[in-house]
Design a protein around this nucleic acid. Sequence first.
DNA 1: GCAAATTTGCAACAACGATGCAATAAATTT
DNA 2: AAATTTATTGCATCGTTGTTGCAAATTTGC
Lengths: 138, 138
Amino acid sequence: MEQKITNILKQNRLSVTVSRQKILNFFLSADGALSHADIEKNLGESFDRVTVYRTLQSFVEKGIIHLIPTTDNSIKYALCKSDCAPGHHHDEHVHFICGECEKTICLDDVDIPLVKLPKGFTPSRFQMVVTGICVECK
Amino acid sequence: MEQKITNILKQNRLSVTVSRQKILNFFLSADGALSHADIEKNLGESFDRVTVYRTLQSFVEKGIIHLIPTTDNSIKYALCKSDCAPGHHHDEHVHFICGECEKTICLDDVDIPLVKLPKGFTPSRFQMVVTGICVECK
DNA sequence: GCAAATTTGCAACAACGATGCAATAAATTT
DNA sequence: AAATTTATTGCATCGTTGTTGCAAATTTGC
């Protein structure tokens, strides 16, 4: 586990630091998407807010995690599947936001269906968010 | 036009005030989705920030406008089609965010395709965001 | 183990959004 | 149409979120 985390960081040409290891570890153990606040809460007082922000930024840039669109002015991050590469994300799955537990869940097995756009629109990325009640909450 | 705006407000049991009229008018004349900042910029110094926030909130509650999910921690609002009702939105169309001009466009004619969720998930709302380059930008 | 390159923490700052309360404006009543 | 009730606005204030510059501390490569 320890080794796996180090490998992921090295593969992405990121220095292996304690904060990056801890944050990445938290993503690997978490079941859903995480917000900045979730991470800070989990890490306690060990790191500065700024460090967390910068760590998340670098993870997004390297394609280790991806952003999930929300309507509530919050940013959520989730681990990318292994076939994500810098600049080229393969997170083309549906995200589910539970209105009860507020968790954001990656439905890795649910592909985003294709849609036909009007003439002239060139899509580069499709994202789909479903709101409702998750399995756990009922 | 003046009359149309007043009617919309009255139909939704909202007092007809200058700020609400101006903001609603801006939505009717705008082609894409608007952020709080867009609205403040457009209105100039005429209204307090708080008034704009509260106006947008009440419009969302009444179903006059709806929220659009974004990944950049900003809130965008767009006019609902006429068949929106309080609590029951019919904004089941695709939203397009242009990476060039940064505009968010409602593709009213593009329906969100149905997806089959895993057992136990009860969906209440589907949203789809496509990023890319819009007609205007190329 | 040492020098160069990164990363971290701190301080300060800006933007965004919420709330309580008094002043103002709109809707109702008579 | 004036008076009363009701709803909205503006102001002050506060908290959260996210950014930037810079010196101190770590990591990396040798």
